[in-house]
């Protein structure tokens, strides 16, 4: 399942930074068992940006939280799978070992910075906390480090603003602080969970650009979780598309735009608003994401798929290799890729 990237600069020989292997995550609730992640595998190399794409409930965030080790267990359970970070299986480590990795070797950026930052402590305190806890620095040194970090993420007047509280910053500035906090100890892997979703469109590009720039500078692996295909195009190297807790397609990022290899990806691409199609109705994938307690048999996407045939309701499609490191979990992957199957008109 190795992803061969088309861009030779990004091919990293040796051990990948992160290898998620056949990961399963389920949530045990009063109403039953919700299967949020059903056998996800992906790899991230140092310096690589992997975009994880999918609707809400596709399992993209849950996978990331399992990697970080911040799932509440219970109700969550990981019945199967491995998460290898620099060759070592995180799921076999003690809680204390994993805690020490968090912040130092892997960090996470959350979507809503207003609720993700603690409202009652200054940003300087929250940034400095990384150095005080992980590096044993004094309050004073930690604050100096916090100012440095705020400069790094281009927050104006960092020296005075370091004592301000999260609510005193604009959304874009707050998200920069989240980025600074993740970068504080120069981790090897950053997971950004919808980092620009809560921001104004004009600010989105700035924040995304900053994140991509710093990622290159520090040569970190970046997992970019998003439902927005537009965000992905400029910064990601590779892309995995998730649906109902499974990866339905993986590909180098530009290949997927040119030629989607899975009906779901095709639907996502078709539902991006386009200027040249102004005035026409926007395409929408019909139906709703599946209930994770009752995932449809066969291919989970079959009730919404315009290409669905009988086999789709009975047999779980295996990943079909499509060349240049591409895979699509569709019975008709090759045909979809080449645009040969006709969609049923609904």
């Amino acid at each position: 399942m190795t992803i061969e990237t088309s861009d030779p600069v990004l091919v990293q020989p040796g051990v990948p930074l992160l290898e998620v292997e056949d990961l399963h995550v389920e949530f045990h609730t009063r109403d039953g068992v919700a299967k949020a992640v059903n056998g996800v595998s992906y790899k991230v190399h140092p310096g690589e940006t992997l975009a994880v794409l999918g609707e809400s409930g596709s399992g993209k965030s849950v996978t990331a939280q399992a990697v970080m080790g911040i799932l509440d267990m219970p109700p969550a359970r990981i019945p199967r799978g491995a998460i290898k970070f620099q060759g070592r299986d995180l799921l076999k480590m003690s809680n204390e070992e994993r805690r020490k990795l968090r912040g130092q070797r892997m960090a996470m950026i959350f979507q809503d910075s207003l609720s993700a930052l603690n409202p009652v402590y200054s940003v300087g305190f929250q940034l400095g906390e990384m150095f005080r806890v992980h590096r044993g620095m004094s309050r004073k040194d930690a604050k100096a480090k916090a100012v440095e970090l705020m400069d790094l993420v281009k927050i104006p007047a960092a020296r005075t603003r370091v004592n301000d509280y999260p609510h005193q910053f604009s959304g874009g500035m707050r998200q920069r602080i989240m980025i600074a906090m993740a970068l504080a100890l120069e981790p090897d892997l950053i997971i950004a969970d919808e980092p620009t979703t809560a921001l104004d469109v004009t600010v989105q590009a700035q924040v995304m650009g900053l994140l991509a720039e710093l990622q290159r500078e520090f040569h970190m692996g970046l997992i970019l979780i998003t439902h927005d295909l537009g965000v992905v195009a400029d910064v990601a190297d590779n892309i995995v598309v998730m649906y109902a807790g499974r990866i339905v397609e993986r590909a180098p990022v530009h290949a997927i735009y040119r030629q989607p290899g899975h009906p779901y990806t095709k639907g996502l691409l078709a539902s991006i608003p386009r200027l040249d199609l102004k005035g026409q109705d926007l395409y929408a994938i019909k139906g709703l994401p599946p209930n994770l307690m009752r995932i449809p048999s066969g291919c989970a996407f079959n009730p919404r798929c315009p290409y669905a045939r009988d086999v789709c309701t009975t047999e779980l499609p295996a990943a079909v290799p499509l060349g240049t490191g591409r895979e699509s979990a569709c019975h008709f992957a090759q045909a979809v890729l080449e645009g040969e199957v006709a969609a049923d008109v609904h």
């Binding site: 911040i70 959350f110 603690n118 402590y121 906390e129 990384m130 806890v133």
Partner: peptide, 26 residues
């Protein structure tokens, strides 16, 4: 259940610090 508690955990703070510093004050 607050997001900032999840952030504090993701920062790699020890559980004790998450509770006494981040949870109790709020």
């Amino acid at each position: 259940r607050a997001d900032y508690i999840r952030t504090a955990t993701a920062k790699g703070l020890p559980r004790r610090r998450v509770i006494t510093v981040h949870l109790l004050r709020n």
